[in-house]
Simulated assay, not measured.
Amino acid sequence: MTTTETLAVRRQAGSRLIPLLAGAGFVVFWSSGFIGARWGTAYSSAVDLLAWRFLLAGTLAAVVLAIRRPRISRADLVTHVAMAFLTQFVYLGLIFTGIDHGIPAGVTALIGSLQPILIATVAGPLLGERVSPVQWTGLLIGLAGVGLVVADDLGHSSPLLFLLPFGGLLGLVAGTCIERKRKPQAHLLDALCLQSLVSGVLFVGFATATAQMTVPHELGFYGAAVWLVVFSTTGGWGLYLVNLRLSGATRISSLLYLVPPTTMVMAYLMFHETIGLLAAFGIVVCAVAVLLIRRPDRRTGR
């Protein structure tokens, strides 16, 4: 094999490895958000926790932006402000509030796992993303798998409370569609910092206006806030933006099927929550579903 052929093979392997690592990292870091929510809301309200989370993240973001001094177009600025409002303020605000009011994290993750279906049926055609029959099969199998994972948690909360995470889900879907439609050109680091800064203003302003901003005395609360900044904001949302640019909205959304199983494993390791046989079977079903959804289209090579 010539040197040129060797380099070509390495580039091809690298082009496949990067999306795989980005996808795996996204699942782990995104799942950590549910753990941080459960951890932090044990000490204070969801709004207070989110305000402190984005106060820290926004401060760091402001420092990074001040050092980098990026040139961001007006169109990109509008896009990222809209995304911060929809995917952070609306999505996280309603998700955390639901958990704070007693909705189990597994059920919340199940509702979040409806995103691939919404993306495929509503947003996909608008974005020009075709969903193959095999991917449709994977979408439905994945939804069934998530249902198995969280089956034991269903029926423990008021039905009206489910409107909170479902409303948050709609915010995430809308923000995802805006990003894929407008395709902002700003550097990913600048995009992450800008959205974190805007989210900090929104959450701190809302918490202050509603008298929910406090100064908790428990170190565990600030541990949860730092956890959310490092793993959920920087890792989870940062890799969400990376995956959006590497693949279509349907494929990145399909990874959300792996979030409830991963969350359960993390909860078992951190809070000693048990995993039943039904949930273990559901984890396998979710993995099969994601493989089907992310299977390349033979006719397009994508």
Score class of each variant (00 low, 15 high):
L292G: 02
I67P: 01
T262A: 12
T108P: 01
L277M: 11
G301D: 06
V9I: 14
P125Q: 03
G23T: 06
T263R: 02
L291E: 12
T6N: 12
I119V: 15
N243I: 09
V9G: 10
C177R: 02
G112I: 12
L49G: 05
G223C: 09
T3R: 13
T6M: 14
K181M: 09
G142P: 01
E218C: 06
L256M: 13
G102K: 00
T233W: 08
V146W: 11
R10Q: 13
L163Q: 04
I67R: 15
S232F: 13
L163N: 00
A186R: 08
I178D: 07
S254L: 13
A84F: 09
T108S: 15
L126A: 10
T2F: 05
P125C: 06
G248N: 05
R251W: 08
S73M: 07
G124R: 01
G276N: 09
I141R: 08
G248M: 10
M83F: 15
G142Q: 11
I18T: 06
V122K: 00
T214S: 12
L258A: 14
L194G: 08
L258I: 10
P159R: 02
R294I: 10
F162Q: 02
C193I: 12
S196F: 02
D152Y: 04
Q88L: 15
T87V: 10
P260Y: 10
R16S: 05
A84T: 11
M270Q: 08
P260A: 11
L278A: 13
A13E: 10
V63Y: 08
L50P: 00
I35N: 07
T97M: 10
R10K: 11
T300C: 11
M83T: 14
A123H: 00
E273I: 13
L278E: 08
L60K: 04
V131L: 11
I252A: 15
L55Q: 04
H80R: 09
T2Q: 11
V28H: 03
L164G: 05
M270Y: 14
L118R: 01
G205R: 12
M213A: 12
I99C: 04
V198F: 13
Y222R: 06
Q12D: 14
I117C: 03
D100S: 09
F206P: 00
V27L: 12
V259W: 05
I35A: 14
L269W: 13
L172E: 10
